[in-house]
């Protein structure tokens, strides 16, 4: 069973994402911001990360840059999932090492399609 760390400061989004991902047979863990996510990763690297952009304490993009510098941090497949839906943000995310990018609002079809594309499903 593959693991996915859902990182979002919205409890509702985490819940929705968890439900979809568990339906796709993922073992789901949650983090409330970038710092929390980094702590989770340092303890145990997940197979994948579903990542919000705007969060207090540490943003998604800051987390991603830190993660990719960490030992073993190039392994997780990182899929952004954010309301930032312009080309500049997408480019910035890809340059920072994101594997895929979901623009909110999303649904189970989009999430499944994206996770399939990056080979998680």
């Amino acid at each position: 069973m593959k693991s996915c760390l859902v990182v979002d400061d919205s409890k509702v989004i985490r819940m929705v994402a968890r439900r979809i991902l568990e339906g796709l047979s993922f073992e789901v863990d949650e983090a409330v911001d970038g710092k929390d996510a980094l702590d989770h990763c340092l303890e145990s690297m997940p197979d994948s990360v579903l990542l919000d952009w705007n969060m207090p304490i540490m943003s998604g993009i800051e987390f991603l840059r830190e993660l990719r510098k960490t030992e073993g941090g190039d392994a997780p497949v990182v899929v952004f999932c954010t309301t930032e839906n312009d080309m500049e943000h997408i480019r910035e995310a890809m340059e920072a090492g994101a594997n895929e990018y979901i623009m909110k609002p999303f649904d189970s079809d989009i999430l499944e399609a994206k996770f399939t594309q990056v080979g998680l499903i």
């Binding site: 839906n85 312009d86 080309m87 997408i90 480019r91 890809m94 895929e100 990018y101 979901i102 623009m103 999303f106 079809d109 989009i110 399609a113 994206k114 594309q117």
Partner: peptide, 20 residues
């Protein structure tokens, strides 16, 4: 639409071949 470009299209192709 945003919905249509997210179903099946890899984001690398979105960046490479689309304009907003």
């Amino acid at each position: 639409s945003q919905f249509e470009v997210q179903r099946g299209l890899p984001v690398q192709y979105l960046v490479k071949y689309f304009s907003q």
